[in-house]
């Protein structure tokens, strides 16, 4: 068990009378790829913005901490705790991909070789291309390359595959997996449940601003007695009572049928 890279404790977030997140608590460790899934309007983006420090909660605490090795390695003043890629990333027009990365490296107080940095996400050939001439997928990849500038221990990505063709989406998920394997924590919101199921270590299911389920894809499937993450999501989406999901397996058990859920699963229910 390592120290968490980021922790949310009893977080409540709302705008006026509208509650966006309620009583959310979660800890994320280094080396975890955590997928955040949930219907539109469930609070995913706000959740990510809290993790990234872009918003502050109305109640509760968000604490981020860099692992000691990174704290020692980097100048404390230029240390970057978290990286963020918004849902529809876009960069200052008129600049090349390489210039864009160099600007962010300047802000982070570090120097980079843009071609190497872009090569890590498979974008080396586009180093001299203006950002306005990049496709949607390439812009996301540039965003991921930007997110790695300054070696942050936590990377937060908001729907990095939305609107992309399956091949590019696969490439982005593979790139994200590589980022996690460099001993980083990555939290990614996504509606691409097949992709999430393939690469995520852990899935947090949000519904109506509350964490409904939290566990590995396999555990979620086992817990809810369905075959795919998509079925888990469908059970949530069609549930009229989001305070507690009644998965098919549990419903069947209530009716006297044998449950396919496992007693050993490590799914957290809220």
């Amino acid at each position: 068990m390592t120290d968490p890279v980021v922790s949310l404790s009893d977080v409540h977030m709302g705008f006026g009378d509208v509650t966006i997140l309620d009583d959310c608590s979660v800890s994320i460790e280094s080396g975890e790829l955590v997928a955040l899934v949930g219907p539109n309007g469930s609070g995913k983006t706000t959740f990510l913005e809290l993790l990234a420090g872009i918003r502050r909660p109305n109640a509760g605490t968000v604490s981020r901490s860099a692992p000691p090795s990174r704290r020692l390695a980097d100048d404390i003043e230029s240390r970057r705790d978290v990286a963020y890629l918004p849902q529809s990333p876009s960069f200052r027009p008129g600049f090349t991909a390489a210039e864009t990365l160099q600007f962010y490296a300047s802000l982070a107080g570090t120097s980079i070789d843009p071609e190497t940095a872009l090569g890590r996400v498979g974008l080396a050939s586009a180093a001299d291309r203006r950002v306005g001439a990049l496709s949607g997928g390439m812009t996301r990849l540039l965003g991921i390359a930007q997110a790695l500038v300054g070696n942050p221990p936590l990377v937060v990505l908001d729907e990095p595959t939305s609107g992309l063709d399956p091949e590019m989406a696969d490439h982005i998920f593979a790139t994200v997996r590589d980022v996690v394997d460099e001993d980083r924590a990555v939290v990614v919101a996504s509606h691409d449940l097949a992709g999430v199921e393939r690469v995520a270590d852990r899935v947090i299911v949000l519904a109506d601003g509350a964490i409904e389920l939290d566990g590995s894809p396999a555990d979620l499937r086992a817990e809810t007695g369905v075959e795919t993450l998509r079925d888990v999501f469908a059970a949530l989406a069609t549930s009229s009572d989001h305070d507690r999901v009644v998965p098919p397996a549990e419903a069947a058990a209530t009716d006297g049928a044998p449950s396919t859920g496992t007693a050993e699963s490590e799914v957290s229910r809220r």
Partner: peptide, 12 residues
């Protein structure tokens, strides 16, 4: 462009 949100994650 949401670039301000990105800039905020840097030590600036």
């Amino acid at each position: 462009r949401s670039e301000l949100d990105v800039i905020r994650t840097y030590p600036v």
